[in-house]
Computed example of a mutant assay.
Amino acid sequence: MFRNALQPWHLVLVLVVCLLVFGSKKLPDMARSLGRSMRILKSEARALRSDDARPDARTDTP
């Protein structure tokens, strides 16, 4: 039923609708803020992974 549901023209249609809804002036700002948010999310995820990989110094002392 959903075979080949996402065609290239679907993406073009979504982009045109976004352009009409948000306007051409706001789209670059939105993309920039999304990129910043993704960078922050990735750095926080790396920090959490590195914290989990490091043994805690307080648990080694009696």
Rank of each mutant, 00 (worst) to 15 (best):
K25D: 10
A47N: 05
M1W: 09
M30H: 01
L15V: 04
L41C: 12
A57L: 11
S37D: 12
P28R: 00
S43N: 10
H10G: 00
P62T: 07
P62L: 09
A47W: 02
K42W: 03
V16Y: 00
T59S: 14
L19A: 12
Q7R: 14
L19D: 07
C18D: 03
A31Y: 07
K42N: 04
V12Y: 09
P28L: 02
R58V: 09
A57Q: 13
R46K: 12
A5S: 09
P28F: 00
R39W: 07
R54T: 05
V16W: 02
F2H: 08
V16I: 11
P62H: 02
Q7W: 00
Q7G: 04
A47H: 06
R36A: 08
R3T: 12
L19T: 09
I40V: 15
N4C: 07
L6R: 03
H10I: 06
S24D: 03
K42Q: 11
L20M: 08
L11S: 08
L48N: 09
S24K: 10
G23L: 02
P28K: 00
K25E: 11
V14D: 05
T61D: 13
E44F: 04
S50P: 01
S43F: 07
K42A: 12
L34H: 13
F22I: 01
K42V: 05
A45Y: 02
S43L: 11
